[in-house]
């Protein structure tokens, strides 16, 4: 395995997850936390929950975007270094869910930032979330390949 392959593999094997609660009802959040418990143990795939967008590769968002928190969501997304992947967990994050018509709700988070993986459910099941995260890790690797300038960054 050459260095290039190893780097690419590293992106797939080490996705660090940032979880942002975008005014969710906490249902999905508890399920995300459940992913870290011994029963599901997402660290098997090298997924670590970090609290800092500057260290994160995958942004996991739960809940709907409203006029108040879209700035924060945008800021956090901007502070993540490339390559980065966004996972929308739960039906609220995907489409706005039952809150879609509320006066202050913009809708799903894809109204604010580009989303790569949608994990539906109300709340989403931990298995589904881990599956989504794994997909996200693969997308992360693809995105890195697309960046296609490993050598340039290396120099």
């Amino acid at each position: 395995m050459g260095l290039k392959e190893f780097i690419e593999k590293s992106f797939k094997k080490s996705p660090w997850v940032l979880h942002y609660n975008c005014s969710s009802c906490n249902g999905c959040d508890i399920e995300i936390l459940a992913c870290m418990t011994p029963l599901y143990d997402m660290e098997r795939f090298g997924m670590v929950n970090v609290g800092n967008p500057k260290h994160a590769d995958i942004l996991v968002v739960t809940g709907t975007v409203n006029t108040k928190n879209k700035e924060v969501l945008k800021n956090i997304y901007d502070q993540m270094p490339d390559p980065k992947v966004v996972v929308a967990v739960g039906v609220c994050a995907a489409t706005g869910g039952v809150f879609r018509e509320a006066y202050n709700v913009l809708g799903g988070i894809d109204k604010v930032i580009p989303v790569d993986v949608y994990v539906p459910g109300c709340p989403a099941k931990p298995e589904a979330i881990i599956d989504g995260l794994y997909k996200a890790a693969e997308i992360l690797k693809e995105k890195y390949e697309k960046m296609g300038k490993a050598e340039e960054v290396l120099k």
Partner: peptide
């Protein structure tokens, strides 16, 4: 903690990944 845990060479994946991420 009763978990399965990451592979033993996980730290290398982490560091290599970090090395090739964008600089901010």
């Amino acid at each position: 903690q009763g978990r399965y845990g990451p592979p033993v060479w996980q730290p290398f994946y982490d560091v290599i990944k970090l090395l090739y991420k964008q600089k901010i």
